[in-house]
Design a binder for these strands. Sequence first.
DNA 1: CGAGGCGGCACTACTGCCGCCTCGGTGCTGTAGT
Length: 503
Amino acid sequence: MKLEDVLQKHFNYSSFRIGQKEIISSILDGKHTIAMLPTGTGKSLCYQLPGYLLKGKIVIVSPLLSLMQDQVEQMMMNGEKRVIALNSFLSHEEKYQALHQLSKYKFIFLSPEMLRSDQVMNKLKEIGIDLFVIDEAHCISQWGYDFRPDYNKLGEIRERLGSPLTLALTATATPEVKDDIITSLKIGEWEEFIYSVDRPNISLIVESIRTYKEKTERLVELITSLEGPGIIYFSSKKLSEQMVSLFKERGFSKVAAYHGGLEQETRILIQQQFIQGQLDVICATSAFGMGINKDNIRYVIHFHMPLQLESYLQEIGRAGRDGKQSLALLLYSPGDEQLPNQLVEGELPSDAQLDWLYKWLMEHREALNNLSLFESEIKRVSGFTDNQWRMVEAFLQCNNGAHIEKTIDQLKKFINERMLIKLNKIQEMYRWTQLTECRRKKILNYFNEEKTIEMKNCCDCCGVDYSEFYSFITKEPSIKIESSFHWKNHLAEILLSERKNEE
DNA sequence: CGAGGCGGCACTACTGCCGCCTCGGTGCTGTAGT
């Protein structure tokens, strides 16, 4: 049977989209495959279709519960009943049932953390896996080192599962990220399919704004005049909510905040409302975006810069999937790069904390065999945050048996390296905001690509024909600003008082 | 860097202001306790 026939039969499409056929053929030839496809080009088909041609099971490692649930739902809607998400949404009883009858499922979605369980691992070994898929595989590089250490154990997991055929899928494709994926998964030989990350219909603009206050004012101006829907990214949960309140005060009501501090239910609701068009603007942190399938997002604004260009590209890539002219706008004020620096510094443990840990471990050698027992005491005295401790704990477990002094030294070295890499990435992001030459060229070079096509409205450095560019911006604010009178007075007051201060 | 909370002080009786300090983003899981 030809691949096209399988496509028609199971998915009701008559032809493949870019890259899909090559990737699927590579897998069916039994080659480990790394596929870097731009967002929204149908990555999930790359493992779903082989599922109908391979005899055994397909295991898909996914980073987010909501993403898994979405995929499962979609596949069920498509008529595929042999699909399950093995995660904490299942009750104890349901999980027991699912594991007990795991062999009746064809597609099994789970998180990397779920693979820590011996029960799950034993069952997977027993039923046999034909294809091991890592969806959003850049998470290995982005989260595996510190935030979610289980991502960096996938290589070991893979080996314990008998090194099954493996497919890594992502949209973020620096050579560095690719290397991390290959090394971490312990794949010897592989085929790779890498497609351009360029999105010619998204104009890249950085606006330099003198002060923080003016940035807020500019944002209000933008949101009331730009054609939505749009996403605004912040690096603070509180600020994202405050901005929503401000927008609502100004009479702009189809807006909501989205961040990791909200209830799971609320998050799903807001996501749905945005996708269905009941909300026009989302004020979000980096928590928002993975798995958002909405093709008419007209703009992505960054109030704060992300911690790295990879994240920036992912976030702006959510605009203009319908191919229409869209806008990526970053608002920069002097000193903005300090916030990412602060975030990164708080992320990793300090040398002083590790020195304390060394002394403590020398006095409590037996603790190494059961660290979780001492977790609360260690955290209380050392001040490790949950995330810091998880990283340290994972490192100690990996090196259990080695000399304590040596282990701590290695850990310090590891942390210093990570810190340097992260600070470097912030610098790269910062330098990009300060460019005077083509922003697109620079970003493509960063992803090991050349800029090959010239386009209208490329970026602010190339020169944007604003009159044409702003043609999709409505001349009059599309929303009636109810309190505009007060707003203007208020603004005048602020400006006057500032001027007085300056004098 | 900027926001927000807190203590101290002023100088007037209840708040107002200054300076200092801290904090800021991403998610999974199992289990204890309400």
